[in-house]
Design a protein around this nucleic acid. Structure first.
Lengths: 324, 324
DNA sequence: CTGAAAGCGCTTACAG
DNA sequence: CTGAAAGCGCTTACAG
């Protein structure tokens, strides 16, 4: 029996006799044969794998996203290769190069740094990709999947203002973070729109994990003890802030109100009950995967980007401020 | 210029003139050429990728492990392909098949189910693999990286006994979980060794996430209100139990003591302060990666398995029981 | 030092 | 319906 016949049997080609096929299948089982995906990929120019860039898999926000991506992909018989970038610009670029070399069929990208070099790399590749929790830069044709960070931040801050707060602090990510910038801008504009002066001492920027949130809360209160509410630009930061307040025996929300962003699994813990803007992260991962998959099937069509809604989840960290 | 020459230039082969090499490199840059890793892999029989099986990437224990693996691997220019199995036996097997087809150079395995079929698949493959948080079954020759679950569980329960507790409950994983069984056995044997009778009503088995821990704590207290301490077989379970106790206003550790297992990032949160057995998960991931990498370089040598020590981390959830 | 040739393990027209 | 042949994009002896 020739290799071609075996190949046809394995790929259930129409031009094959049922009996031959059966024979092949028997042999396959017996010899424990597995086709070499590299050879197959080489000739078909398909690897059935897509690359997922992840800043930090250890961050529950991203592991949630990764879960959604992996699930959708594996349902369609695609493998998911993930690369932790640690938000390192060099690693982000390496990820792209490696993806091209390895002939991935598509990419899901969550870059933190988008300098010219990065963009030009992307401009030159022929495989589809989608940006996740990130907007596609204008020069690039591919879609993105994100949440409206700016509007959501506005909603969060407005929620605080509507509860009577005017001295509102912000705990934010590093200044170079795109997401951080959008949420910060939402804070700034919402204050302005409500006639509240923006004060430098009410803002502490620089991190995105619990530790930093705790430290930032301390710095905020030291710089301005009259603050009555804080917008923590993500839940990890919010949890850290809450920790600091608990340690200092400052009552939440009686003395300080706090709102976060993300809705991590831990934010609903009994002691935390963080009011927050919920992002549908697993769903976002799933959609991003669907978009690349679509583009792979449908070479010519570029699907529209998707902006997910965020949802204000009122739990127990925001209280009304009774005006003096 | 021939393909062979280009190939030699790219792989810095000794037999090549410096100038030719320079010319090639220039062209490479100019044309933005990237070698096709599939073709290369096909001929070299190397894919420079290793597969990492993960039960649930969303579980902070496993994302910690994944982080360690990915870091070590990428330092050695290997890619990490991860597959979420959701502890589904079929998915675990698919992962192996796909790994063989795709010619991964090595595997890191964290199976929950190890039936005959699974073992025989592994017995028939020629690439190196290491079991992670799991022992290698006797029939198989490869090493594992794990922690001594049994001894650690004994230590945990002993810690409770030494604090004066005798009515000790257990919140455990599903009965089919290997890790769960070992930790359960440690509990059973330590009670016996200390002349404490094992009572069915003191044991609730069946899950491994926060939700289950909360529910289990309730069931435990309902079945036996005289319990004074509980061993939660992992921190997620412990956190759930703590939540239930907080909701019921049962003081920890004054009324109930609790010990966990893992040391998740969240276990040291101000409100939680869970006493626990610390597993070095990132380090475990890193070591597992090193082992596969070693075996890939060193085809004939099989490195010994490694059992990591666990560490009793005393925080604030275990108190002395003053005897009546 | 360089090039032509063979070959990795498949798929896919092309004959028959 | 089946087989022989070409070819995917590389690497690696083998000549020269």
């Amino acid at each position: 029996m020739s290799v071609s016949t075996v190949s046809r049997a394995l790929n259930n080609h129409p031009d094959i006799r049922e009996e031959t096929k059966k024979q092949v299948m028997e042999m396959i089982k017996k010899l424990n044969y597995m086709p070499n995906a590299m050879a197959k990929g080489l000739i078909q120019k398909k690897s059935y794998t897509i690359g997922l860039m992840i800043p930090e898999i250890t961050d529950p926000f991203f592991s949630g996203i990764a879960h959604g991506v992996e699930e959708e992909l594996s349902n369609h018989n695609y493998q998911c290769v993930y690369g932790n970038t640690g938000r390192d610009s060099k690693k982000e670029k390496n990820f792209i190069s490696s993806a091209i070399s390895r002939q991935y069929d598509g990419l899901i990208l969550t870059p933190d740094h988008m300098d010219e070099e990065f963009i030009s790399m992307l401009a030159n590749i022929s495989i589809p990709y989608v940006f996740l929790r990130r907007r596609t830069p204008e020069q690039l044709p591919m879609p993105f999947v994100d949440v409206d960070h700016y509007e959501s931040a506005c909603t969060a801050v407005r929620h605080l203002i509507e509860a009577g707060h005017r001295q509102i602090g912000l705990i934010g990510m590093s200044e170079t973070s795109f997401v951080g910038q959008l949420r910060y801008q939402g804070y700034v504009d919402t204050l302005r729109a409500n006639g509240i002066e923006l004060e430098d001492k009410n803002v502490v920027l620089g991190g995105n994990r619990i530790e930093f949130g705790r430290e930032a809360m301390g710095r905020l209160l030291e710089a301005n003890p009259t603050i009555t509410a804080v917008f923590a630009v993500n839940d990890l930061l919010g949890i850290g802030a809450l920790e600091y307040l608990a340690e200092q025996q400052i009552a939440v929300p009686d003395q300080i109100s706090l709102i976060g962003f993300d809705d991590l699994e831990y934010s609903r813990l009994h002691w935390i009950q963080l009011t927050t803007m919920k992002q549908p992260r697993k769903e976002m991962g799933r959609r991003a995967a669907q978009l690349v998959l679509n583009m792979i099937e449908n070479k010519d069509e570029i699907p529209p980007s998707v902006l997910f809604d965020t949802q204000l989840l009122q739990r127990k960290t925001v209280g009304r401020l009774e005006s003096l």
